[in-house]
Design a protein around this nucleic acid. Structure first.
Lengths: 187, 187
DNA sequence: TTAATAACGAACAAATTGTTCTCTTTTATT
DNA sequence: AATAAAAGAGAACAATTTGTTCGTTATTAA
């Protein structure tokens, strides 16, 4: 890809992230993104059709990366490494979040975090669903598997929201313990 | 209150709900609300400062009502009527939702459902928190109560999202059973 | 009946959006 | 180093949208 395109793209993403740290997605205008990124109006529209398209692309890059790494993790270890293991995929994910790659935390702490967490949850659902299918788990037959999968990914997302809201006082390991203590009993 | 004010207010709320059934909140313009409600531009702004203020007021009216009724329910019965009771507050809430007062379901099924469910969750959190305080529950001391409260209300909201997404195939009683089977083990 | 008040409608400036030009700069390639 | 292709800049644009300010008309409560 042309070096100019890369630079422009990076500038727009960076500007967008910066703005998101300050104000909610809905209040950010294309004009502001253009000004902050310091690119021409035409250039922006050459790269992204709308502000929504920009958001979508950003989410795809971000969560594609983080979930991809978790996928690798589960392929070798399963949802948990083993029954007594301190290292679950969830812990792995939380650590990834805390490392703050690509300022993902900035996005998840911003006013529009819901937005990102929905994308996150969709990816998580996939991750957990494949785990269930691979492991042929024997769950309570009275409870639909689909419900359980949604419960797990949903609870995880809600936990992350709670974590962020409380300024991330807990370590990923602590959170993982909390999470397992409310999830494992239902599996 | 002046009869004219009531009518205007109702017309705006109704127009807003109608529009929300068709398109996402962010894509609705004040102009459309004005046109649909068939009120003057000045009149709209005399009632609500912005579109956001309108949304907030609508949410307050809606969830104030539904949670208020659940509050009454828990004051007499507690979070569950008794250990083996088929009637939990959650069931009560779900039934309320299904009855579709004020077209609340229309709002919760719309593209902006997240928006409403956040309001819903905040109210729920209050409801559950007061329950915990009143009952002096003896929960696992290693897990913060705050985490548990968030887990419960969060899971409930995620379940409702799941329910709506799947076109509400289940009855409130079924859902209540699912929910209790994943929540009671952790209490 | 009357005084208060709510709604209406037109017009307004300012900001935003997405597009279409032309012109300049930067690439990759030969 | 020369060149053709691609990308960006910048100005101008019509169309919407927003929130406000008028003066006027209708409705309400007393």
């Amino acid at each position: 890809m042309d070096r100019r395109q890369q630079k422009t793209r990076a500038a727009i993403f960076s500007a967008f992230s910066t703005l998101l740290a300050d104000k909610s997605y809905s209040k950010i205008t294309v004009q502001e993104i253009i000004d902050t990124a310091n690119v021409g109006r035409t250039t922006f529209y050459a790269h992204f059709e709308t502000k929504d398209a920009l958001l979508k692309t950003l989410c795809e890059e971000l969560f594609g990366h983080i979930i991809g790494s978790a996928m690798d993790c589960t392929h070798t270890h399963g949802l948990y490494s083993d029954k007594s293991a301190p290292e679950s995929v969830f812990c792995h994910l939380l650590q990834h979040l805390q490392e703050n790659d690509n300022n993902i935390l900035g996005l998840l702490s911003c006013e529009s975090s819901d937005l990102f967490l929905r994308y996150f949850k969709d990816s998580l659902n996939e991750l957990i669903r494949t785990q269930f299918i691979n492991q042929n788990r024997t769950t309570n037959p009275d409870i639909p598997q689909d419900f359980l999968i949604n419960h797990i990914s949903g609870s995880f997302v809600e936990m992350v929201l709670w974590w962020i809201k409380g300024h991330m006082k807990q370590t990923p390991e602590e959170l993982d313990r909390y999470f397992r203590s409310v999830i494992e009993p239902v599996l």
